[in-house]
Amino acid sequence: MTGRALPPVPAPRLDRRFGRVHWLGIAFVARRDFGRVLNDWPETILAPVFSTLVYIAVLSLALGPDRDSPAGEAALTFALPGLVALALIQRSVETTAFSLVFDKLEGSIADVLMPPLSSVELTLGYVLAGMAAGLLTGAIVLAAVAVAFAVVPAMPLVAAAFAGLGTIMLTLAGIVIGITAVKWDHVAAWFVFLVGPVTMLSGVFAPVDALPAPLDTLMQVNPVFYLIDGFRAGVLGDGAAPVWLSLTVVVATTAMLWVAAVRTVAKSPRLRP
């Protein structure tokens, strides 16, 4: 008996090809991480905007009657761009670090480790998400400040460049923190003892020449100082350091952190035990 010949089954394409760069995978990592930020918007978007406004209110109320004096006005105007930059970079570093630690503790980190993504691609995915989160928060804070205080960026391109680079720089730091930290206590320690001081003591609130002796030198070796100063130059039209110097420092720091982050993603036993 001759059976009817079954039609040939097409061989499954196990080797789905992607080009030199796995764009789809990068987009997946970025969307997944940014989606979390959007899901949690009261904490991730609203809270930073609100606390920035609280800082501004504190400064403004503490200046009180001095607010209208030239010195008072200068102090407030000086702090505004700094606070916008602070909200932006804190969002970036938190987004990535928290997300990575959460995934590691929940085991869902496998979602990004199993797909065929190289370390560079994985890092890039996280960077895109951190950028999007930081820029979104920063844009909302900037809009609020612009409306309330009639501050319009003097050099929008410079401001945008430093905002973009700042989010990349801090997201990369967040990747290193998120992978190195084994539990929430470690993340909290990183944030309280390193990220907090480095970001807050970076000329957000007061000009560098107002500082006493050891602190001013300390601030001038802090790359976040150049980041904030460059952003402030973009908003107010004038910074403490020349824009080219700030740009060089920020680009160099970002490049070094990029290498560190990719190496951590590739090699860290805390990511792939």
Partner: peptide, 14 residues
């Protein structure tokens, strides 16, 4: 940190 930040920002004026 808050002490440093607000002392620096306001100490010169207030």
């Amino acid at each position: 940190l808050f002490y440093a930040v607000f002392a620096l920002a306001l100490g010169g004026i207030v």
